[in-house]
C-alpha cells in the first residue's frame, strides 16, 4: 500500500487537530476543488502580523485533509510573509508522502485557501 495510507497518516486523517471552529478568527477563505468536490473553509486568527491560530472545516479526501493539517501546523506562529512564501514545492516536501500527479490538486487546495485568506485579510486592513 502506498505510504499515504500508512497508519500514522491515517491517524492524522481520522482525527485532524485543526479541524475545529475558530470563533475569534479574522481571516477567512472558502475553496472548492470542482473535480472531486472537496471543500475547505479556512479560518485564521492573525495578530501583529503573525498567524496565532489556524483551523479548517469542510469535507475532503485523505490527501487534502493531511495536507491541510500539516500546512496549518506549519503556519501557526509564522508571519504573514512567511506563510505567503509557502510554495507548492515546499508543501510537497512538508507532506512527505507519495502522491500521484492527479492528487497534487487535492494537496494544494489548502495553499489556495491560505493565500486567499491572507490576501483578503491584508485588503481588509489597508
Amino acid at each position: 500500500m502506498d505510504s499515504l495510507y500508512r497508519e500514522e497518516m491515517m491517524e492524522i486523517y481520522k482525527d485532524p487537530k485543526h479541524k475545529k471552529e475558530l470563533p475569534n478568527a479574522n481571516a477567512y477563505s472558502e475553496e472548492e476543488n470542482p473535480l472531486c468536490g472537496d471543500t475547505i473553509k479556512l479560518r485564521l486568527k492573525i495578530k501583529n502580523g503573525k498567524i496565532q491560530s489556524a483551523a479548517f472545516e469542510g469535507s475532503s479526501c485523505a490527501v487534502s485533509t493531511i495536507s491541510t493539517e500539516k500546512v496549518l501546523g506549519y503556519v501557526e506562529g509564522k508571519s504573514i510573509e512567511e506563510a505567503k512564501n509557502l510554495t507548492q514545492e515546499k508543501l510537497l516536501d512538508l507532506l512527505d508522502i507519495d502522491i500521484s500527479m492527479s492528487r497534487v490538486r487535492c494537496a494544494t487546495l489548502v495553499l489556495t485557501a491560505l493565500k486567499n485568506a491572507l490576501e483578503s485579510f491584508e485588503e481588509g486592513n489597508e
Binding site: 500500500m1 472537496d38 485523505a62 490527501v63 492528487r103
Partner: peptide
C-alpha cells in the same frame, strides 16, 4: 470516506 481515497487504495 472519500472516493479518491477508495480509488487510490484500490489502485495500489
Amino acid at each position: 470516506t472519500h472516493p479518491h481515497d477508495i480509488a487510490a487504495i484500490l489502485n495500489s
